[in-house]
């Protein structure tokens, strides 16, 4: 069996009284496209944010590409990594947010080049060429000099995907990437994600788009109340769910 790109072991996370993740364990293999589904508050977004270390886990461990995230084991105890080291680990993942979070004072092109230039200190002309290629890939060559406020929601989200890809991540995390979009703009973003999936990118997608999950996902994971309830091939989980809770969720969504 191939070594997993992400190994999640017994991860728990609470926000005050609320337990967002309860003892979650999961593997994501290289090149796999995984869709996380479930009601809001089920922990799927929190799981994504823990992998990107926007939220720190309370217990358990997450390994990305064989490297333990956020902490270092030393003398039988765990020590939290410095902000700089966490920043370096984050570069292996790209994050796409529900609300895009593009930098409004920078053009589409500048949004994409910001990370490679400022964080990775790469050469300007090389970064620029790559950014232009990324814009072409998401179908926005003509919008390089537009500010986010001049773009539609779908266009903004496509720029956000290009911005994440510019850091050359091994893993792309999508947090409900189409939930904030008008219905007619959902398709263009999903099309970009499908193309990305076909290119072999490892992806974890929190989504309510079951059609996308059915078509693209190698595996669908259903979560409820901070725990993984059921997982398997999309056709199995979505078509013939074994668990009662999964069936209840699916019949409420469709």
């Amino acid at each position: 069996m191939t070594k997993p790109l992400v190994a999640i072991r017994s991860v728990s996370k609470s926000f005050g009284e609320f337990q967002a993740l309860k003892n979650v364990s999961l593997d994501i293999r290289p090149g796999e496209v995984m869709c996380l589904i479930g009601a809001s508050g089920s922990g799927k977004t929190t799981l994504l944010r823990c992998i990107n270390q926007l939220a720190a886990i309370d217990s358990g461990g997450i390994w990305l590409d064989g490297e333990l995230l956020g902490v270092r084991e030393q003398g039988g105890r765990l020590h939290r990594l410095s902000e700089r080291e966490i920043g370096r680990q984050r570069l292996k993942t790209g994050m796409v947010f529900q609300r895009f979070n593009l930098f409004p004072h920078k053009t589409a092109l500048e949004n994409i080049t910001e990370g490679p230039l400022q964080v990775q200190s790469r050469k300007s002309d090389e970064v620029r060429a790559e950014a232009i290629e990324l814009l072409r890939r998401v179908g926005l060559s003509a919008k390089a000099d537009s500010y986010p406020a001049q773009l539609s929601g779908g266009q903004q989200q496509r720029v956000a995907i290009a911005r994440a890809l510019a850091m050359k991540p091994m893993l792309m995390l999508f947090d409900e990437p189409t939930s904030a979009l008008d219905p007619e703009l959902v398709g263009e973003v999903l099309a970009v994600m499908k193309e990305l999936a076909r290119s072999g990118m490892t992806m974890m997608v929190v989504t309510h788009e079951l059609g996308f999950a059915r078509e693209v996902a190698d595996r669908v994971v259903y979560m409820d109340q901070g725990a993984i309830i059921e997982q398997g091939r999309a056709s199995d989980v979505l078509g013939a769910p074994r668990e009662e809770r999964t069936r209840a969720f699916l019949s409420a969504v469709i």
Binding site: R84, R88, M95, R99, N101, P104, G115, Q120, M167
Partner: peptide
Amino acid sequence: VDIGQYEAAQAIGMGRLRALRRIVLPQAMR
């Protein structure tokens, strides 16, 4: 400045001070 701007800056590997200087302060200026 929206908290999502800090998170987006962190997600492309920026530390706190760089995120402040490059992303948050220019928007706060307005």
